[in-house]
Design a protein around this nucleic acid. Structure first.
Lengths: 207, 207
DNA sequence: GTCTATAGGTTGATAGAC
DNA sequence: GTCTATCAACCTATAGAC
C-alpha cells in the first residue's frame, strides 16, 4: 500500500529509484487543504499541483482517503520530537515557553488537517484509529505538561491549591485557541501574545 | 433570497402560507454536517432528509453555500442572548459558571459548522464577512468576561498581578478545547469537568 | 513508478408544470 | 412554494502500456 515506506533497507537498490513523487503529492495536498479545504481538494487538483498523474496517487496511497490520512500522519511527526525531548529540569518560565512554542508550531500545521478530518466522514474513522493506535491525543500533552507542573508544585513553585492537570489542560486550550484563530481568521488581532500567555500563566500559578 | 424572513409583518397574510420547508432544510443540514461533514453533505442528501425536493433548496437559499451559511447564522443566535443578558453582579464563581455553561452550549452546536467553514473554501469568505459585519468573534467573549474579571479585580476578588483579558482568553480556550474534544473524539475521557474548570480557575485567580 | 485513457457514478443547478 | 425531470460538469478509481 505504501511502497515508499519500504525503502528503508540496506540491500543495494534495485530498479528505478523513486523520483520523489510521493513526497510531492503529500506537500501538494497539504497546500491545497490550506487553500481550499478538503471538500474542494480533488485527486485531480493534487495531481496537477504535484506534477504527477492521477494514477500515481492511487498507486501510492490506494485511494483519496489514503492520501489525506498520510498527510495527517506526516504532520504529527514534530510532536513525537517534543514528547521525547521532554521538559526536563528547565525552570517554570522556560519550560512553559518551550512547551508552548513546540505545541503551537505543531498546531499551526495540523489544525487544518484536524478540521479536514471532521469535514469528511471518510477520514474520521481512520484518523480516530490512527490516534488511538498510537496513543495520541490532547491527553498526552496534558500528561507531559501536567507532570512537569506537579513536580514544580512539589518544589514550591506552584501554589498548593491548584490542580496541575486541569491547569495543563488550560494551557493546551489557550494554545489551541490562539492557533485556531490564526488559521481560521488569519490574523492575531486581539490575541494575547505568546509572551503574555506565559507571563500571565506564571502570575496565576505563582505562590 | 430568503423569503421566509419576510414573514415578520402585521398585514394580513397573502398567498400560500409557508409550510416550514425552510426550517426543515436548516435542521436537516445541521444533522448531516454532524453525521458526515460538509464534504459529504450534498444538496440531494439534504433534500431527502428534510423531506423536500432539491429544487426547494435552491429556491430558498440560492445555492449550496447559501444553505450552509444560513445554518451558520442560525447556530449563532444563542450567543446574542448571552451577550445581552451579561454577567451583571453575580459573584465570581456564579459568573464563571454561567458564562462557561452558555459558551459550551453554543460551541457544542457551532464548532462543527466552524470546521465546515474551513473545509470548504466556498464558505470561508461568506463566513468571515458575516462575522465581521456583525462584529462577532472570540474577542467579544473576551471583552465580556474580561470586563467582568477586571471589575472583580477592582473589588479585590482577583489577584492584582493578573491580566484579566489574558485570563478571560484562557477560559475561552479551555471551553473550546473541551468542546472540540467532545465533538471530535466524541467522549469526555481525560477531560476536566466543567466544575473542575471553574474551581481551578477560581484557585488560580484568588488573592 | 509513472503515464494516458476512460469507465461509471455523482453532483450542483435549471426549467417548467402545478 | 414545491415538485419532477433533466443535463452538463465533474469526480474517483481502474486498466494497461511504457
Amino acid at each position: 500500500m505504501f511502497p515508499g515506506k519500504m525503502d528503508i533497507e540496506k540491500a543495494p537498490r534495485r530498479g528505478r529509484p523513486p523520483s520523489g513523487g510521493r513526497e510531492q503529492i503529500l506537500t501538494a495536498t497539504l497546500e491545497l487543504l490550506r487553500e481550499r479545504g478538503v471538500a474542494r481538494t480533488t485527486t485531480k487538483d493534487i495531481a496537477a499541483r504535484a506534477g504527477v498523474s492521477e494514477g500515481s496517487i492511487f498507486y501510492h496511497f490506494g485511494d483519496r482517503s489514503g492520501v489525506l490520512l498520510a498527510v495527517f500522519q506526516q504532520v504529527h511527526q514534530p510532536l513525537t520530537a517534543l514528547r521525547e525531548a521532554g521538559l526536563g529540569d528547565l525552570d517554570l518560565a522556560a519550560a512553559l515557553d518551550r512547551f508552548i512554542a513546540a505545541l503551537e508550531t505543531f498546531l499551526g500545521d495540523s489544525l487544518i488537517v484536524f478540521y479536514a478530518a471532521h469535514a469528511d466522514i471518510d477520514l474520521r474513522e481512520p484518523v480516530h484509529k490512527y490516534l488511538s493506535d498510537n496513543q495520541m491525543g490532547p491527553h498526552k500533552g496534558v500528561e507531559l505538561l501536567g507532570g512537569y507542573l506537579a513536580a514544580a508544585q512539589q518544589r514550591g513553585e506552584v501554589r498548593a491549591g491548584i490542580d496541575t492537570r486541569a491547569a495543563a489542560f488550560m494551557i493546551l486550550g489557550t494554545c489551541q485557541m490562539r492557533m485556531s484563530q490564526m488559521t481560521l481568521i488569519g490574523n492575531d488581532r486581539g490575541l494575547p501574545t505568546r509572551k503574555q500567555v506565559v507571563e500571565n500563566f506564571m502570575a496565576m500559578l505563582a505562590p
